[in-house]
């Protein structure tokens, strides 16, 4: 598993020890936890993956994507169609989902990102609705009831059909996402994203192709969600259009913004809060989104960079 690169995120020796300890704890949890706790924690790791993907768009490149659930849907439906309609192995759906998400990302991001980047917010919102309505209307995607009976994949001859196996899958994906985010952030393209985010005109003057740089962030974020979507379909074995609503996109965005956009530990914290907090405070039930909305507003007004902020000033 990808423990070593994930550890590299921590820059100080103390950070390395703490990260290693946390990973060991995360690996040991299935030995002691009941299936309810495992279910919640699997979802938490899954949200870490999604939030880190969205963090590339929102955190590093400073763009607002309100239709992120659409790419998650692209991945999930690709996995569903590949296994159910084409009768192929689940593993074929991963490259196909990456291709599909990239195409969708370029089609939506290409024309929009050349213009004012705030247009992206609302165009992605429209795109999210378009994808949801399309899968609900098409016969091949099972209409409103979705796709049912997606077969569970095999890994090294071992069938992935227990909650513990999905706990490890999502934990591995989350760690991979941490490692990938870390590498991307400190690469040439990562620096370009942050440059465009803080001063687009200066970045252009330095020869950075701002449209291409923003598009690359948008498409990479989409790929994270598509891969997550594939495994989500494998875990749930059934997917329906109503999983991929605007509220889903909002929850993922909330994880990124509450925690601290642009900072990997902050985003992980945000993702965990978004998943675990509603489980701890079950009483609020239907008021969950209201409470989240209030938190979001207060965070933006009082602590705009998030609970665990990046060192860069968001202003």
């Amino acid at each position: 598993m990808s423990v070593a690169p994930a550890l590299a995120v921590a820059r100080s020796p103390r950070g390395t020890v703490v990260s290693a300890a946390l990973i060991v704890v995360a690996l040991a949890i299935p030995l002691v936890a009941n299936s309810y706790a495992l279910e919640v924690l699997s979802e938490a790791w899954f949200y870490v993956l999604l939030c880190l993907g969205l963090n590339i768009v929102v955190g590093y490149a400073g763009l607002l994507d309100l239709g992120y659930a659409a790419f998650f849907a692209v991945g999930a439906y690709t996995a569903g169609l590949v296994t159910l309609k084409l009768g192929l192995s689940f593993w074929f759906s991963l490259p196909l989902a990456v291709v599909a998400a990239s195409i969708a990302g370029v089609v939506i991001g290409g024309p929009t990102l050349r213009l004012r980047s705030d247009y992206l917010a609302i165009v992605t919102l429209g795109f999210g609705e378009m994808v949801r309505i399309t899968v609900r209307n098409l016969a091949v995607t099972g209409g409103a009831s979705g796709l049912v009976g997606i077969s569970r994949p095999y890994l090294f001859g071992y069938k992935l059909d227990t909650i513990a196996s999905y706990y490890y899958i999502f934990l591995a994906l989350a760690l991979l996402a941490v490692a990938a985010s870390h590498r991307l952030e400190h690469s040439r393209i990562g620096r370009a994203w942050k440059y465009v985010r803080s001063d687009e005109d200066a970045a252009r003057a330095m020869g950075i192709n701002h449209a291409a740089v923003k598009l690359s962030a948008y498409v990479l974020g989409a790929i994270f969600a598509a891969i997550g979507g594939c495994f989500y379909a494998a875990k749930m074995t059934a997917i329906a259009p109503e999983t991929f609503t605007f509220n889903q996109s909002l929850l993922i965005l909330l994880g990124v913004v509450l925690g601290g956009r642009g900072k990997i530990p902050g985003v992980i914290l945000g993702a965990l809060v978004v998943v675990v907090a509603p489980e701890l405070f079950r009483d609020i039930g239907s008021l969950r989104m209201l409470v989240f909305a209030l938190c979001l507003l207060l965070i933006m007004l009082l602590r705009p960079a998030g609970i665990w902020p990046e060192r860069w000033r968001w202003g």
């Binding site: 400073g62 008021l287 979001l296 705009p304």
Partner: peptide, 22 residues
């Protein structure tokens, strides 16, 4: 947030929208 980066204001607007709706 008048002088804040655009992204902060957009997210705030989104929060207001969620708040009214909910």
């Amino acid at each position: 947030l008048r002088e804040a980066p655009k992204l902060s204001v957009l997210i705030t607007a989104l929060a207001v929208s969620m708040l009214l709706e909910n």
